[in-house]
Design a protein around this nucleic acid. Sequence first.
DNA 1: GGGTGATGCTGAG
DNA 2: TCAGCCTCACCCC
Length: 267
Amino acid sequence: MMPEGHTLHRHARRQRRLLAGERLAVASPQGRFAAGAARLDGRRLLDVEAYGKHLFYRWEGDETLHVHLGLFGKFRTHRTDPPPPTDATRLSLSGPEAVVYLSGPTICELLDPGDEERLRARLGPDPLANGTDPSAFVESLARRRIPIGAALLDQKVIAGIGNVYRAELLFLTGIDPARPANELSSEEAGSLWHLAVTELRAGGRSGRIVTVVPDEVGARRRSEIPRGERLYVYGRAGEPCRRCGTPIEQRTMAARSIWSCPDCQPS
DNA sequence: GGGTGATGCTGAG
DNA sequence: TCAGCCTCACCCC
């Protein structure tokens, strides 16, 4: 349950591996995507791509299915013995190797020509996309006076960052969330981008968000860090900073809570 | 069993 | 800025 960009890229890889190339039975047990499912039923799925928090399914016959999980959306993948879908299953994709159920998405729709282009125009660079360089992100920050904590949630500035990563990336770079985006140095902006690439990749590999450096909690690997010790600041209001012991602060920024260490992220 | 909040986003005001 | 939407896991009784 962590739909930031790394999760979507992970889903895309997994579903591409399990379903692409196959003719799939497509249904909408819940009924809210019935017409779209009927249109796709029996077609061959060609590819699954992720960009930011969006998924695009390419089908033979030039159809594109667009899925956005929003806050609540969830995929369940069954390699064997799939349970029956529930009345919350918006979409089911059934192939010879696996069955994928989707529940609770904000978006599950077929795209018309031009829709995808318009959608992509609203998205900034994705740190998980191949060959993306930091310049678009750095220049975008330089044009904005909004706090960096707000800018990181703006999908037009950087696509795929969510509320956990925005707080953690700012801690890791030692940047106060309230600082105006255009007042960051280009070094700071660059290191935010590079950390986003590194951290989202790591999250995509493991399937969970672990930003804490293992040494600092007496572990040898990130995968050994117990639940509850994997993040520096997210959700830790009032608890001591893992680096300096100062109580973590919570405030609201871009209508969401953000946490930071006033000592490690000085204004 | 009910209440709540959550890793998101949009559109109305 | 804020309500609304989608679903589920978790907490407390």
